[in-house]
Amino acid sequence: MERRSTADRLQGRAFQALLLSCLGFGLLCLVVLLVQVVNEGLPRLNLDLLRNFPSSSPGGAGARSAIFGTIWVVGICGLVVVPVGVGAAVYLEEYADTTRWYNRLIEVNIQNLAAVPAIVYGILGLGFLSRGPLNLGFVVLAGSLTLALLVLPIVIITSREAIRAVPNSIRLGAFALGATQWQTIRRQVLPSAVPGIATGSILALSRAIGEAAPLILLGGLTYLTFNPTGLNSPFTVLPIQIFNWISRPQEEFRVLAAAAIVVLLAILISMNALAIFVRNRYQRRW
């Protein structure tokens, strides 16, 4: 066999190198960002950051109310979005007759909703939840529901993929044993889809945790020296606290912001790690 021409082989190599450099560029940016943030935030990266409430004196300020606010807002968001999202996904995958126009309309719109900018959800939350018809006020519940609307399409889309990955032979096997459609879904399809649903839900919530824009509109940008005490409590969250600190003139607040960014990144990375763990641990091979 003849060797391919040198030009051909060089071209292949060059293309491979180009692709690698794309990956390298992305990673490099991330590493630079991380190093810089950690470096800058290091002096304030201690337990006081987690223990103290925000304060006008940078020396004693911490992110305690923002951390608790984040836990409240994202926790309630998860409680709302996972059941609703999985339910919608089950309907679309197991019940919906895709030849019907309204089901196709829903499908297309879920894809569109996933691409709507976060700020638009913020405006919706402001106009519909905080004020307007529901008039909840600038509280945890309004923030949670807004974030839930924001990540709902992600949960639906990932859950649908997980449900679709369950082979049809499993459904037929259950039906052939006299199981009803609900029994088949409840006892075979959903348990088999749980790893995928869990992974998708965790990733959706980690998206929610990093959102600042919609919550700024919902009164999240407040100076709070207490933790939220319930659904009707005012709140702030980490990304907004960071935004707040960075916009201050004093240098010490910037350091504080960098330290809070490290905390936020640590939470995000652990959530994503959990998602990967869940996926690998419970992954099924058919």
Partner: peptide, 30 residues
């Protein structure tokens, strides 16, 4: 009807569960 007329498929399609739970599934749902 399917409860009285059982079916075995072309490709073995056990449920992704234990051997015990595979057999117990039908009686449980019925």
């Amino acid at each position: 009807v399917r409860r009285h007329i059982g079916m075995v498929f072309q490709k073995p399609n056990p449920f992704p569960k234990s051997i015990y739970d595979n057999v117990a599934f039908g009686p449980r749902v019925n």
